[in-house]
Computed example of a mutant assay.
Amino acid sequence: MAESWANPGIDLHLEPAGSSGLRQGLTDALRDAVREGRLAPGTRLPSSRALAADLGIARNTVAEAYAGLVAEGWLT
């Protein structure tokens, strides 16, 4: 059985779609998850590799989205 990155109780349902590109769509989806309380403070996010594989996108896209949100103060 494969090990899952998800923590019990996390309800992310990320849909990184939109006309602004995948990275911006993922960034917006993660930011919305924080705003809406679906991503609580202290919640451990999946690695960029694991999330990229789950979403079927490039790892660098996820890494750049994470880095941008850290720079903005949304993630630590």
Rank of each mutant, 00 (worst) to 15 (best):
A67F: 01
A6C: 04
Q24L: 13
L39V: 03
A63M: 06
V62L: 02
E15V: 09
L75D: 00
V34L: 08
R44I: 15
A65K: 06
G56W: 09
A65H: 07
P46M: 12
R38I: 09
I57V: 14
A63I: 03
A6Y: 08
R31W: 08
G21L: 12
I57C: 11
A33Y: 01
L51D: 10
V34R: 13
G18E: 05
L75Q: 00
Y66M: 04
E3W: 02
A33V: 02
L12G: 09
A2C: 02
R38N: 14
G18Q: 05
R59N: 07
I57K: 00
A67E: 12
L12A: 04
E72D: 15
W74T: 15
Q24V: 10
G18M: 03
P41L: 06
E3V: 12
E15S: 15
S47R: 10
R31Q: 13
A2I: 07
R44S: 11
L22I: 14
A2R: 05
D28E: 15
G9P: 03
L26M: 03
A63K: 08
L75E: 00
S20N: 12
E36M: 03
T76P: 04
N60M: 08
R23F: 00
T61D: 10
A29S: 14
A58T: 15
P8Y: 03
W74F: 14
L45P: 10
G9W: 14
G21W: 12
D11R: 14
R38S: 11
G18P: 00
L69E: 02
V70E: 13
Q24C: 01
H13C: 06
G21T: 14
A63C: 01
G42W: 07
L69I: 07
G37A: 09
E72C: 00
A65M: 08
T43K: 05
L22Y: 07
S20F: 10
V34I: 15
W74E: 10
N7F: 01
D11Q: 14
V34C: 13
I57F: 01
E72G: 02
L55A: 09
R23E: 14
R23C: 02
E64V: 09
L12W: 09
P8W: 00
R31A: 15
G37F: 07
A71Q: 12
R35V: 11
G21K: 11
I10K: 00
I57L: 06
Y66C: 04
G21F: 14
G68W: 01
I10Q: 15
D11H: 13
V62H: 03
T43I: 08
A52W: 05
H13I: 02
R35M: 05
L69Y: 07
G18W: 02
V34W: 05
D28F: 05
A6L: 12
G9M: 13
D32R: 15
D54S: 14
